[in-house]
Write a protein that binds this DNA or RNA. Structure first.
Length: 263
DNA sequence: CAGATCACCTGCTTGC
DNA sequence: TGCAAGCAGGTGATCT
């Protein structure tokens, strides 16, 4: 579900509500979402006050008065404010005022305490909305990888996922199997620009709601209606009319226009 | 290091 | 209608 624009939208919907709230109690009920000692995690959170909510890559990072909590939504995770618990609720944060629940049908998400947050954060690459052109080009040139899997690599860029990788490559006119180190400076610059524009536009539209994504207020995103290739296999390219193709690259469905995107 | 394969888990869609 | 296969926004381990 959630890539950078969706996570950013969740953070923005949480930010007006969470800071200053005290966690009265917490409860976790999935060994996958909260691996290890989830009872201890609940005890650690008890009595803590949330100071800030930020995003780093696809991670939601909450600074507490003591310690840090990170939430990764995996594929189907949701953080919802003042919503009732359901079949797939695996986390409940009871505040002095209100409640926040964590839902995640597939349980690919992770809720973790600060020590693990630091370990994870050290493995993340630069923020795609912050990295400069020169550094981006140098990083592309240094790798001899197909460009699509490279964009999905969180050590290369933190936050780009399957939808926005495909959409960015389409916008830049680059084939997903192009070799990163062999991209011309002009095409690398175009990719840098495309990633920034698409992520920013997607954030403006609250992200993409493909099947069930919503922010913490339960509001869906609208960027999916502006997708040019993702999920459009067989449909005409919005630019040239040729049918959009779907191939598998690195085990991920990959959508592109064979006429507009060149190696 | 690049890449393939598998694994984690549930639910929805598709095709026979 | 039923059932199996295939698919899904992500990541990490393991092996070549």
């Amino acid at each position: 579900m959630p890539e950078l624009p969706e996570v950013e939208s969740v953070v923005r919907s949480l930010a007006p509500h969470l800071p200053g709230r005290r966690i009265v109690s917490a409860k976790f009920t999935s060994k996958h979402v909260t691996p290890g000692n989830r009872k201890q995690l609940a005890i650690r959170l008890e009595g803590r006050t949330i100071q800030s909510v930020k995003r780093r890559g696809k991670f939601i990072v909450m600074a507490l008065d003591r310690g840090t909590l990170s939430v990764h939504l995996g594929m189907t995770g949701r953080l919802l404010l003042d919503a009732p618990a359901g079949t797939h609720t695996y986390g409940v944060f009871a505040f002095d005022r209100g409640v926040m629940i964590y839902d995640d049908p597939r349980q690919f998400g992770k809720i973790e305490w600060s020590a693990d947050v630091a370990r994870r954060a050290s493995k993340l690459g630069p923020e795609p909305l912050e990295i400069g052109l020169d550094e981006f080009c140098a990083n592309l040139r240094r790798r001899k990888s197909r460009v699509k899997p490279l964009l999905l690599n969180q050590r290369f860029l933190a936050g780009v996922g399957n939808i926005y990788a495909d959409e960015s490559l389409f916008a830049a006119g680059i084939h997903p199997l192009a070799i990163s180190s062999r991209l011309s400076a002009a095409r690398a610059a175009k990719l840098h620009q495309a990633i920034r524009e698409i992520l920013a536009l997607a954030i403006e539209h609250g992200g993409s709601s493909i099947s069930d994504y919503v922010d913490a207020d339960g509001k869906q995103g609208w960027f999916q209606i502006m997708h040019h290739v993702y999920g459009r296999e067989g449909e005409p390219c919005t630019r040239c009319g040729a049918p959009v193709r779907r191939i598998v690259v690195g085990q991920r469905g990959t959508h592109f226009c064979p006429k507009c995107q060149k190696r």
